[in-house]
Simulated scan of single mutants.
Amino acid sequence: MPNTLSSRAALRFNIAFVSWCALFLVLGAAGLAALASVDRLPAPPITATNCIDEKFKFLHETTIREPDLLAVGSSVTWRNLDFRVLKARYGDAVAPLNAAPCYLHVDETAFLTGFLLDNMPSVKTVLSVFSMRDFETCAAGENAFFRPEDARDYVFGDSPGWHLYFKNLRPGAFLRDALTLADMRSGENIHAPLVMDAYGSGPLLLPEPDIRENVSVDPACLRHLGNLGKDLARRGVHFVVVLLPPMPGWIAAYDPGGFRDGAFRAEVSRHLDPTGALLIDAAKGLSLTDKDFTDHAHLQWTSVPTFMDHLISQMDRSQLDLAGGGRHHAL
């Protein structure tokens, strides 16, 4: 008799457990569908940062499936490239895609680049725009800041990503994003817009420039950059590294005379030199004022075409063939 009662109790518990799980999934799916209908559904949570997840969402949805030029980096790459200018110069000879999200340091950029190239065999050139902020802190080893299997199934497979809301749910971040993402996606939140153009770039335009905080260089980041250059060389992929010009106001506030900035640029060159990467130091030959910047790491979108024209002229001068092939040297 006791065994029978125990079996019945266990059965009731299992039925109740399964029922509650089913109810949770049904209500959860209904909630996700409701948020999607009003454009308040956050992107599937692959990382803990909405602008990175939004970039994975863009990569999931874009029709650019076989790019030959891939931009990867932090928001310094994401917000400072306008590939319309590149297409106007090269036309259909180049298929660019800006896969850069935000908040990445060099070690994280290296991890993301490896993941993307493992799944994009069409890429012949990787383009990264860096400022000193990208080199502020890096892990000693590889910084795997997301699970490759989650991103691979969502970005490159046929998975719609619904299971990720349950697998990686962070309730606090999810609710916050549900309340704020609509204004970021529309661009109404001008300080943190998540608007992306057809190539994945994220325009930024602010009324006044902001000098913002001081930054310094972690030597580990320079080593990661050199290792990334070597990895791309082993893959047979050209690496174009662009150093953003310094913001004059930032230099005046934190680096009078520009000695730290100069040392940083020299160290980047030293670490890239053995890799065969093309280094374009935009501090040489491009004169910008504070009004061209939103802050020390981002240009006003209206100034990006000038920056792009300079990059294109330097790539042409190096005889880099963006469609695949060609030797180049540091500029």
Rank of each mutant, 00 (worst) to 15 (best):
D255H: 10
G226S: 13
H271D: 10
M247L: 12
F293R: 03
G262V: 02
D231F: 04
L222S: 06
D295K: 03
L222A: 08
R270Y: 01
P248S: 08
D281I: 00
V242G: 05
P274I: 06
L228F: 09
G262H: 02
C221V: 09
G226A: 14
L272D: 01
T294L: 03
D231Y: 07
F264H: 12
A263C: 04
A263Q: 12
T302H: 07
L244G: 05
V217E: 08
D218Q: 09
Q300A: 05
T302S: 13
R234T: 14
A282G: 01
V241L: 12
C221D: 08
R260Q: 14
R234V: 14
A283T: 06
G285H: 00
V268N: 00
R235T: 02
F264S: 03
L286F: 02
P248G: 08
E267V: 04
G229M: 07
G257K: 11
G229Q: 04
D273Q: 13
D261V: 11
I280L: 08
A252V: 12
P246I: 10
S269T: 10
R234E: 15
Y254Q: 11
R223Y: 10
E267Q: 15
S303Q: 02
L272T: 04
L225P: 08
L243Q: 04
T294E: 10
C221F: 09
P274K: 07
